[in-house]
Design a protein around this nucleic acid. Structure first.
Lengths: 336, 336
DNA sequence: CTGAAAGCGCTTACAG
DNA sequence: CTGAAAGCGCTTACAG
């Protein structure tokens, strides 16, 4: 059955339909000026034979592979515990599937691997464009990619002065909303578990401070502690915070908030009675936490969708200048 | 700079090195019989120019794209909450990177998408081989893929009678170990939260029953309840179990165990004093649970590594017949 | 509107 | 050991 049939080519279809291979190619590529009857005849043969063009040959001839790469710089620790990437990939694949694009995954496990693979990414003509996650401030890909003429879109704001295309969520606004909410709750001894490993952390810190400024609330420097976005670091950070007796804590990520929550529980304190707690991300587990975590929801899946759409427009030459897309966030009220 | 340089071709390198393009191709592909000096001269030019072969052209000429596809049938719910896939992808990319293979991701969001994309997967010559996750018993890909001549490896045991290649963990043995551990703890009122959505669930149930048989322990049918591998389902299942007063529960997945754990805590019971609880998977969050969850660790990352290696051998024609690889699991002692 | 032909950048028998 | 040449299966000016 299928196993024996030789692979059909454009010429075969042309012969069967009584036209040239050029014409078959044109109907496949929706070239407009074709006599309707001819088009129909060809399409009939294509359907009957189940012909599918050889994508590799198409790529070589058209200089377009239809493959985009998702680059996740080495951050294994993060990726393995963080559902963020799953949501992102979900949004991305949804959109590539819809656009007829192929998604190639470049996940690096060491700095070395990163450097090695970068070259083959840029030079081998396999990939039409790149979506790159901006996970750290010092992202070597940022510098490398802008020196080449491969189209790319960052997910998250990269730390760089030149204008480039990226999609991001409103981190500053989100943190502002979180702080404002805590203030509206009547809390005044606000604390923050921040993280300055990437620009998202920076922006969230900025939004938090902005809200305090706007509401003329002072913050004790002792109530500003750092984590690394992980649950463990949130746990430790919260313990550093206890001596300062905060009545409200904003954790710059849900994972850290979940860690803080555990420390709070173990200290015998009640959320939100003793300490109000707000996270950032709205991970699936946050809704399931005990008590459910109030947090800032960011539309991670949409980030993936928008990234692909933006890149796709760049590939179709519809866009010249770098473009930035900022997606809104929202406060999700739960325990606090 | 880089932006202006025209892309080099084999001919360019040949001209620069004073040899034909065929020779350059041969040194690039490590063809053995080449005069050392010629090889060196060519390699020098390649390094100096930073030449990288066009992969698309290589693919067309060699009929080998170097791209393998990871197919995740539509199971969005699962994938989004389950770190399993992240570990798997991590193992897979580690190995594809090392082998010089490219990984293309095929994640489906509906049955319809699955059917549509399947054809282009099989017929467009883009993909050399497939790694397919066997997430459900009714996996339409199983039937489709075996009708084509594309090499493939399943991750997990598919429900099918014909012999095919797959990598799997010792589910039966793992569940046996779990039950045996509970028995050794002196428990006799054993219960199981099972799931029959896929063969992993079946196998775990089987191993559990086997241990009970071997130790001549009866099980009250009321103590056999079902979930769907999710936390919520484990929570609900545990509540069904309370009336049967079990002193030990084996949950066929950590997510279900975590749900059960919550139900147990809310019922005011203590783990392991009142109820011993064992899960299966060893997710990152299981070690962080309160109390830490005793579970069966499965080497998910290794599953990815072995899958790629097996597929790669198939692609290199080193292997003819279908092969099955079963990776060991181990009991991880924590609270229970 | 359609076809003949060149070309995309490689690989690989076939000679020598 | 190395080169000339054909070929992989498409796309796309160029004519007509």
């Amino acid at each position: 059955m299928n196993k024996q049939t030789k692979k059909l080519t454009l010429d075969d279809i042309g012969a069967l339909a009584g036209v040239s291979r050029a014409t078959v190619s044109r109907v496949i590529n929706d070239y407009p000026h074709i006599t309707p009857e001819v088009r129909e005849r060809v399409q009939k043969v294509i359907v009957e034979t189940g012909y599918k063009p050889n994508k590799i040959a198409q790529s070589l001839a058209s200089n377009r592979s239809g493959i985009i790469g998702l680059v996740i710089p080495h951050a294994v620790q993060t990726i393995l515990t963080n559902p963020y990437f799953l949501h992102l990939i979900n949004g991305i694949t949804q959109t590539t599937n819809a656009c007829g694009l192929n998604l190639s995954l470049f996940l690096f496990h060491s700095m070395n691997e990163e450097v090695q693979m970068a070259r083959s990414l840029f030079y081998t003509n396999l990939i039409d464009g790149l979506i790159i996650t901006a996970d750290r401030k010092e992202n070597p890909f940022v510098k490398q990619v802008i020196q080449h003429d491969i189209p790319f879109v960052f997910v998250g704001r990269p730390q760089i002065k030149v204008p480039i295309s990226y999609v991001n969520v409103a981190n500053v606004m989100g943190a502002y909303l979180a702080a404002e909410h805590l203030i509206n709750l009547g809390r005044r001894r606000l604390a923050i578990i921040m993280c300055d490993h990437n620009t998202a952390g920076d922006d969230r810190y900025k939004g938090f401070r902005q809200a305090l400024d706007d509401y003329h609330i002072e913050i004790d420097p002792q109530r500003i502690v750092r984590g690394d976005f992980s649950l463990e670091s949130g746990y430790v950070a919260m313990q550093q915070l206890f001596p300062t007796v905060p009545d409200a804590v904003f954790a710059a990520s849900d994972m850290m908030a979940l860690g803080a929550q555990r420390a709070i529980r173990q200290a015998g304190l009640i959320i939100p009675d003793d300490i109000a707690l707000v996270g950032f991300d709205d991970l699936p587990q946050s809704a399931l936490a005990e008590p459910p975590l109030t947090t800032i929801r960011q539309p991670i899946e949409d980030l993936g969708i928008e990234a692909v759409n933006l890149l796709n427009e760049m590939l179709c030459q519809k866009i010249g200048l770098p473009r930035q897309i900022i997606l809104p966030v929202e406060l999700v009220l739960r325990a606090s």
